[in-house]
């Protein structure tokens, strides 16, 4: 039981973290640059964070 609530809490923290990473000012750090493949860095940043969140969610649900 404590483990479950720990994981639930962990996921909520990840959600908060995600909200911070997806918003000003952190989001603006990637703005205006261009990354690999010539894709906009902003786009790569968002998809990168997104993927990390999903991995964290998959790990934490176990």
């Amino acid at each position: 039981m404590p483990n479950t609530s720990r994981r639930v809490l962990g996921l909520a923290v990840v959600a908060l973290l995600g909200f911070a990473l997806f918003n000003f000012p952190l989001l603006s750090l990637a703005d205006g640059h261009s990354g690999p493949l010539g894709a906009p860095a902003l786009l790569l940043y968002i998809f990168g964070v997104w993927a990390v969140l999903i991995v964290l969610a998959a790990v934490l649900r176990r």
């Binding site: 639930v8 996921l11 995600g18 902003l42 969140l53 649900r61």
Partner: peptide, 20 residues
Amino acid sequence: GIGFLPIYLGPTLMALLWPT
């Protein structure tokens, strides 16, 4: 531009809160 994305970022964050 990337204005289409928040509509999917929100649900992603919400999904993390689903276990509770």
